[in-house]
Design a protein around this nucleic acid. Structure first.
Lengths: 340, 340
DNA sequence: GTGAAAGCGCTAACAG
DNA sequence: CTGTTAGCGCTTTCAC
């Protein structure tokens, strides 16, 4: 218990040189005698020698097998599942994922990013819709650490995994239109980012194509991006007179449903609600939430795979982008428009 | 873009020695001329010099301001909230929390623990009910890294934050008894750990004291510790004939409620359900979940504070234990027993 | 005011 | 088969 055992201690005790110990312990010791090897191994076990990580990575730079994962908020189911996807491939590849949850605060994101740089991680998965490429490069001190982007602005550069948010918006609109709704609302968010913009654009344009009016002045409401955010918007939603609401994501939808219920509004009889993401929760709320499915876990897997690829082939083609499909999952929170 | 700028580069460019640069950059440069200082600062900004973390911690061991947080599963709301608590104080204290989510796999827990040791973190928060003190010490290579335990076996040694699980079980029983229930069930988990044992003990003994029968053969069912686990147990719960169920935690309760609903059983009219933890979700499900409240966020804060204290005063009193209160939150998932 | 030198714990040529 | 030497990037005496 206590003081750290160094490679030198082991060497001294074994009566050999430091090199020998190092080599043997790193499996490069074929050339040493069996006796020596065993002696060293025994000593290592006995004193529970663990090589110093920092000393090690000081020399073998870049090969530490650590990746950083920056998410807005681990405690959201969406990012929790995403991280699980990352972890799955990380484990296969013997990578250690360092998870940073920045609480949606740009300053913290920046800080964590810098931390990761200092710790010379091998690569980075950034799931933040807020940061611009510029901010990222800034935080990365213009070093060429491979990173991949997720859930964020399309116009940025960089390798990334994408889902078609525009199409997701279309699917939501088509579903609601097919159910006969004409008064529809998009419950967006205050700090709008590109992915949400796209969802709304797909939604809006599909509706407008049916010669049904939808414009930002009358059919757009803004909530905080959370369950509570959705909850708070129940009254405004009711007052809007809409019969169907498409929300920025499932968290907002679940909050909204709670609010509606407390106001005595029935879902879907009075108002249909459709969310976005397909988080696990959707099947556990009542009524079960109709939503646009994103393959969240797979996104985590995909992001990690692309990153790995970038790490292993730094000189490869410039920007790798992988597309993942979205689809409609019709459950119980949407129904025929009853207002005729 | 590219190659890393070292302190030597800066020194060379400034025409001074490495020492000077180091001193100036670490704020210990009062003794240097203003000109020199400014020159160095300028160069640092210009080349975006960031000191190498590993080189640094190799020398100044132990003062890196990093703590490790090992949780079973970040994507569970409970641990997500807990981690947020940790982060709050971490940020105030300028600590970087490294989050590891071990997916409830002992092997992974062990592996991550070893990783943290290698990276010479300053301290450790272990939220795993599975690992024994022995396993932990083993993974920690018997080094004296301060750590604190959470959500786990009481009989273990070590500083920790605790809530009174036994009392929580009592509260649940009292609540159900007051509602007139006599046929009660504890929906426990397969891999039982001390915290769950305690909950059940408090529950069971309170009930037995009323001369109502409750024994493990008839009144205990075991589920996987997850929403799906609870969901799967709906049928057995119904078949048991119980009018009230106390679940191991809220996740299980929420899953169970979904299962019951799908089987056409009403909550609370037919069966009352009471959970444990008071996760955020409880207010968003329908009916809102009655539960035993644990101050999850505060537990995270408390754990971190104790750890910090241990780090800063390694020689202090042996084991610090902080107790946090639990309380009953009566919502809508429990009601009067209708079976008379 | 400033710098030379030592060394943190480790690995990797290169000699023997 | 094994050891010597050099050095990763940085901080820290201590001498000039």
């Amino acid at each position: 218990m206590g003081k750290k055992v160094t490679i030198r201690d082991i060497a001294r005790m074994a009566g050999v040189s430091v090199t020998t110990v190092s080599q043997v312990l790193n499996g490069k010791g074929k050339r040493f005698s069996k006796t020596t090897r065993e002696k060293i191994m025994k000593l290592r076990d006995q004193y529970q020698y663990v090589p110093d990580f920092h000393a090690r990575s000081l020399i073998m730079k870049g090969s530490i097998n650590t990746i950083g994962v920056l998410v807005p908020n681990v405690s959201e189911s969406f990012f929790g599942t995403f991280v699980e996807g990352v972890q799955q491939v990380a484990r296969q590849e013997k990578l250690i994922p360092l998870i940073f949850s920045a609480n949606r605060e740009p300053k913290l994101e920046q800080e964590y990013l810098e931390q990761m740089v200092e710790r010379s991680i091998d690569g980075l998965i950034i799931a933040s819709a807020r940061m611009t490429t510029e901010m990222i490069n800034q935080a990365l001190s213009n070093r060429d650490i491979p990173y991949i982007l997720f859930d964020r602005n399309y116009d940025q550069q960089g390798a990334r995994v994408l889902t078609d948010d525009y199409h997701g918006g279309q699917l939501a609109a088509q579903h609601l239109l097919a159910l006969g709704h004409t008064k529809m609302l998009f419950l967006g968010v205050k700090n709008i980012t590109e992915n949400f913009k796209q969802r709304m654009a797909g939604f809006q344009e599909t509706i407008n194509a049916q010669e049904i009016n939808f414009d930002e002045d009358h059919n757009l409401l803004k909530a905080d991006l959370s369950k509570d955010g959705g909850y708070q918007m129940a009254r405004p939603v009711i007052e809007s007179g809409a019969t169907a609401v498409f929300t920025a994501n499932d968290e907002v939808a679940i909050g909204l449903m709670r609010g509606l219920r407390e106001q005595g509004v029935r879902v879907p009889e009075d108002i249909s609600v459709i969310g976005y993401d397909d988080i696990i929760l959707d099947e556990y709320v009542y009524p079960q939430l109709t939503t646009i499915h994103q393959p969240i876990f797979k996104l985590g897997v995909g992001a990690t795979e692309i990153l790995l690829n970038k790490i292993n082939h730094p000189d490869a083609e410039p920007e790798q982008v992988e597309h993942f499909p979205v689809k409609l999952i019709a459950r119980q929170s949407t129904g025929k428009c009853q207002q005729n």
